[in-house]
């Protein structure tokens, strides 16, 4: 997309201006996506959860309550930040860094077609993984900077949990990359044109979803936040815009997770009859709805149970899976 905008702008503008123009266009596009994702997914999440709980969910703001999250965001913008004794530098840095990571993922992930990403880079899967993996450090930093016991407990929990599960996640991703021979999502999808990888790697599929769930801190695994125990865990002192940024990056992460599931295991945009773009979005939306469900069904597991499960089952299974794939591919 960057190169496309660059090429289009080069027709009319001289050298530095066309690059700047292309970058601005790119920024606007990614901002639009960043702004739209939480609104849409937030609405879907709230409405879907509400129907499971036999409530109506948001109804007043906008048609079907679609704009409820916009209203919430505006409310968050208007909030005063009340903090005492925080380390203001790291306190401010964490939401910005998390949002930057979310931006990065949005920039490099393909949006439902070959090379249909804002910036095309060869190793985009690896970059997306890195953008996801940066969060334990940030969570620990946030928990420390807030000068609050609940926050630091949440921070430690978050770091433990994500460090545990990211290992399983990367090992699972490795098995996919071994099978496809590439870190590029375009190649991985192209490799699934006949058979989806979920058929070859059912175990990896399950492991990926579970580990991904733990990494994005979605609700049965939202132990670092744990509203009932730790109030909001490492987010406890945040309010206003900074808190809004957390919400935003959360929604981006769950969305990225469902997109990655589709890309890595469910054949990406491959499918008969319908155009590739439509196929991709159908798959993503269905996956996302399925991924949104456990929050409303399962209670939160305990941190020791989760970590034990991670080291005792997830990682060994992921490694066995990796070895099996390696043996099949190379031998």
């Amino acid at each position: 997309m960057l190169s496309y905008a660059y090429a289009v702008l080069s027709r009319w503008l001289p050298y530095p201006l066309n690059l700047i123009g292309a970058l601005i266009a790119l920024l606007v596009a990614s901002l639009a996506i960043v702004a739209v994702i939480p609104i849409i997914i937030g609405w879907v999440d709230r409405k879907y959860g509400a129907r499971i709980q036999s409530r109506w969910g948001p109804t007043y703001v906008g048609p079907f309550g679609l704009l409820q999250n916009v209203a919430d965001l505006i409310k968050l913008l208007g909030k005063r930040v009340i903090t005492t004794n925080v380390d203001i530098l790291s306190y401010t840095f964490v939401p910005i860094a998390l949002t930057a990571a979310a931006f990065l993922m949005i920039l490099i992930i393909p949006w439902g077609g070959p090379n249909l990403s804002i910036v095309n880079i060869p190793y985009n899967l690896l970059f997306i993984y890195v953008a996801m993996a940066v969060s334990p450090l940030l969570i620990l930093l946030a928990g420390w900077s807030e000068n609050n016991k609940y926050a630091i407990i949440g921070g430690f929990r978050g770091a433990t949990q994500i460090a545990t599960y990211e290992l399983a996640l990367i090992v699972t991703i490795l098995s996919v990359t071994i099978l496809s021979g590439s870190y590029n999502i375009n190649d991985i999808v192209a490799g699934q044109s006949s058979v989806w990888y979920v058929v070859y790697l059912p175990l990896a599929f399950i492991l990926f979803i579970t580990a991904g769930y733990a990494v994005v801190e979605r609700d049965p695994f939202d132990i670092p936040e744990a509203t009932q125990e730790l109030l909001a865990g490492w987010k406890v002192e945040y309010s206003g815009l900074r808190y809004g940024l957390f919400l935003l990056s959360d929604y981006v992460k769950i969305f990225m997770l469902s997109m990655l599931v589709v890309y890595l295991f469910l054949g990406g945009w491959n499918g008969p009859l319908l155009p590739a773009f439509v196929w991709f979005w159908i798959k993503t939306i269905v996956t996302m709805m399925i991924l949104l469900t456990p929050r409303w069904v399962y209670p939160r597991v305990r941190i020791d149970q989760l970590v034990k499960f991670g080291w005792n089952w997830m990682l060994p299974l992921a490694i066995i899976n990796l070895l099996a794939v390696g043996m099949v591919v190379f031998v």
């Binding site: 959860g49 499971i52 709980q53 036999s54 409530r55 609700d219 049965p220 939202d222 744990a226 509203t227 009932q228 409303w296 069904v297 399962y298 209670p299 939160r300």
Partner: peptide, 16 residues
């Protein structure tokens, strides 16, 4: 109890 172990749905259902 459902809510405190993290299951918000149980809370809403029971209150329904």
């Amino acid at each position: 109890f459902g809510m405190d172990v993290g299951n918000y749905t149980g809370f809403i259902w029971a209150f329904r």
